[in-house]
């Protein structure tokens, strides 16, 4: 109904210029569009820095062209493999464990009958989500402090094993980062699954129960199939962003300690460091360009896949 009317409206105005109403609508868009143009599109033009040896004194246009040298240098460096492995590897771990934990949590919440209890537990579990990574790094420090930390105290006094200098042991960090990431995000992630579960038609479950289906069968044939499409689309969306790391998580928790780089350095922290600490703008920009490009291709590709798989897509 509505669409047909709009189409007629549009046809009527087609030959004329914008109507007075349309002008006022365009006027409403003007400032936001300008802001997007300046802060989102202008930097894209700045990507030519990636092909230059950027010097502040010479500016973007004055700096010397170097072709693909920045890219070559990065791709052939030893950093490249490590960064890709850490970024993709850790993100993959976060995705798998994050989704498993969120689904389990949402099912637990769904099974809980008391509304009050649901509310209390959900609020408590959501609290970490409201914290900045800076605060989380303080908390983590409380656990991992080599001298005073809770964990070392426990290992020394209760388990009687050699305490560990956590901030000097790269091998433990994938675990720590995964736990921190799940701790912070699981409750938020579970909300979507929880909403999907609450949306299941209860008469369906009731009917199955009358037909003699047990809890297991209800889950196997009714509840899990409902969740599968949501899990698929969320996984696909996350895979699209697998080359983008959570800067706060990787910068604040390992506290930018060089010894930990082998397992904690990701593309985003590397870009930041090359830019702000080393000051190699061209190189840093080249890495950012690669990341954006690969991210773009991945998002478009995964979106295409999700369209095929589940008929749901972002665009």
């Amino acid at each position: 109904m509505k669409l047909a009317k709009d189409a007629k409206d549009l046809r009527m105005h087609k030959r004329r210029g914008p109507t007075k109403r349309e002008w006022s609508l365009y006027a409403m868009c003007a400032v936001p569009v300008l802001l997007v143009l300046v802060f989102n599109y202008l930097p894209m033009y700045g990507l030519i820095i990636a092909f230059k040896n950027y010097k502040y004194s010479l500016g973007i246009f004055g700096s010397e062209w170097v072709g693909f040298r920045n890219f070559e240098f990065f791709v052939t460096s030893s950093d490249f493999i490590r960064l890709v492995r850490n970024t993709v590897g850790l993100n993959a771990i976060f995705i798998v464990f994050g989704i498993v934990c969120a689904v389990i949590l949402s099912i637990m919440l769904y099974e809980l009958k008391s509304r009050l209890a649901t509310k209390i537990f959900q609020t408590t579990l959501l609290t970490p989500h409201f914290l900045s990574w800076v605060i989380v790094s303080y908390m983590l420090y409380g656990f991992l402090h080599p001298q005073y930390g809770i964990l070392n105290g426990f290992m020394e006094n209760t388990l009687h094993i050699q305490p560990l200098d956590w901030y000097a042991t790269p091998s433990v960090w994938p675990f720590i980062l995964t736990i921190a990431s799940i701790w912070k995000h699981v409750a938020m992630d579970s909300i979507l699954y929880y909403a999907a579960l609450m949306g299941i038609d209860s008469s369906l479950i009731e009917a199955a129960r009358i037909d003699g289906a047990g809890k297991f069968k209800i889950y196997r044939y009714i509840i899990l199939p409902e969740l599968v499409s949501l899990i698929t689309i969320l996984t696909i969306m996350k895979i699209g962003n697998i080359f983008r790391a959570d800067f706060g998580l990787f910068y604040q928790l390992p506290r930018d300690i060089g010894i930990l780089y082998p397992t904690t350095d990701v593309i985003d922290t590397y870009i930041f460091r090359t830019m702000r600490v080393i000051g190699d703008m061209g190189m840093s920009s080249a890495v950012g360009f690669l990341q954006s490009l690969v991210g773009f291709v991945l998002v478009v590709a995964t979106n295409y896949v999700s369209k095929k798989v589940s008929d749901t897509s972002l665009f």
Binding site: L42, P43, M44, Y45, S284, F289, Q291, F296, F315
Partner: peptide
């Protein structure tokens, strides 16, 4: 929508 897919990244934004 395009700005959600592709961005100039940290460095060009910083310079701008």
């Amino acid at each position: 929508y395009f700005t959600m897919l592709f961005s100039g990244g940290m460095v060009p934004t910083y310079i701008l």
